[in-house]
Design a protein around this nucleic acid. Structure first.
Lengths: 175, 175
DNA sequence: CTCAGGGGAGACAGACCAGTCTTACTCGCT
DNA sequence: AGCGAGTAAGACTGGTCTGTCTCCCCTGAG
């Protein structure tokens, strides 16, 4: 409910009035569960981490590949399918970070969740036996975020392009 | 005036009241020059294209390199210096695109200006004699945008990492 | 000097926002 | 039956926003 509204239209564009009206809950009830709108957004980001990062991206990528290297590259196969969806909504963590700024509590939380994404990538890189996995995951993340922005611009082939560069990056971190 | 406020704090966060107060102009005068706030934002984006894309990035990169290939890679040297500035404000085109969405007129305008950036990259790629420059510029742009988001997260080394992948990309488009 | 027009200052309209509070009702427990 | 907790509905507060309108002054042309 709130998850769909926030992920599709952005946390700043959806107000508390609309949320409670659509969910059929009273305003006082909402504020009994969440002390402020920001705390609901924090809960949304947490849910986003679970539903999107973990279940939609990482788990899917692990299913699509057999070796860790294949699983890493499969991230961009999942991205390719995701970019083609008509309800493609970009990355909520990037959106919130750029909307609120890195100094805002919600921006800081988004930075933390983005770091968690890098953690998943780094774990796969370790499994693949790559070198300097911290550096690797940061470079890899550049490709992920860049391709997402490109997809928002309308470039549906961004995933393939990022995947190609990702292949070179893996090669470079093998030795 | 409006340029600094919009680029540092985002077009949504700066209201018309604040703009006219800071510039000392009357509200009626402002609305005689611009029929709406959005039209002022459009003028800001146009100015951003000139001051940032052309003068701060492309011209600087051309100055720093002697060959077209060096000039391409110098883009990320310029980025590296830019990321370290304390008034680093990310890319207004990406910000507006993600804030307003690709369907909004301001989002569409941002997409156009981002395409202009790819045009500059493609021109340099042509001068460098690279192959398939359209594809090249799209991949290159992924690195630019991804590194900007990473810098917003606080990764000041994002430019170096993007530059390394950019080198592989040039190599791949030589033949 | 006269007068028209532009601009500064700011009130105002109408719509939103987050968050508080009141009222009325329902349900479960004793 | 009676009572208390929880909730829906929504009024309300105080603030924000974009955009319009009024008032008044100042300046420059004839």
């Amino acid at each position: 409910m709130a998850y769909d509204l926030f992920s599709r239209r952005g946390v700043r564009d959806v107000g508390v009035n609309e949320l409670i009206e659509r969910s059929g809950v009273a305003k006082a009830t909402f504020y009994r569960h969440f002390p402020s709108k920001d705390s609901l957004v924090l809960a949304f980001l947490e849910q986003r981490d679970q539903l999107w990062t973990v279940e939609a991206i990482v788990s899917q990528a692990r299913l699509r590949g057999t070796t860790p290297t294949e699983q890493l590259l499969a991230i961009f196969d999942v991205f390719g399918d995701w970019f083609l969806r008509d309800d493609f909504e970009a990355c909520s963590f990037i959106n919130v970070l750029l909307e609120m700024g890195p100094a805002h509590p919600l921006g800081k939380a988004s930075i933390d969740y983005l770091a968690k994404i890098r953690g998943h990538v780094q774990a796969l890189a370790e499994e693949a036996g790559l070198q300097r996995t911290e550096e690797f995951s940061r470079s890899w993340h550049i490709l992920m975020k860049g391709s997402i922005v490109s997809a928002t611009e309308g470039d549906t082939g961004a995933a393939k392009r990022a995947q190609q560069m990702a292949g070179w990056l893996i090669e470079h971190h093998r030795s």
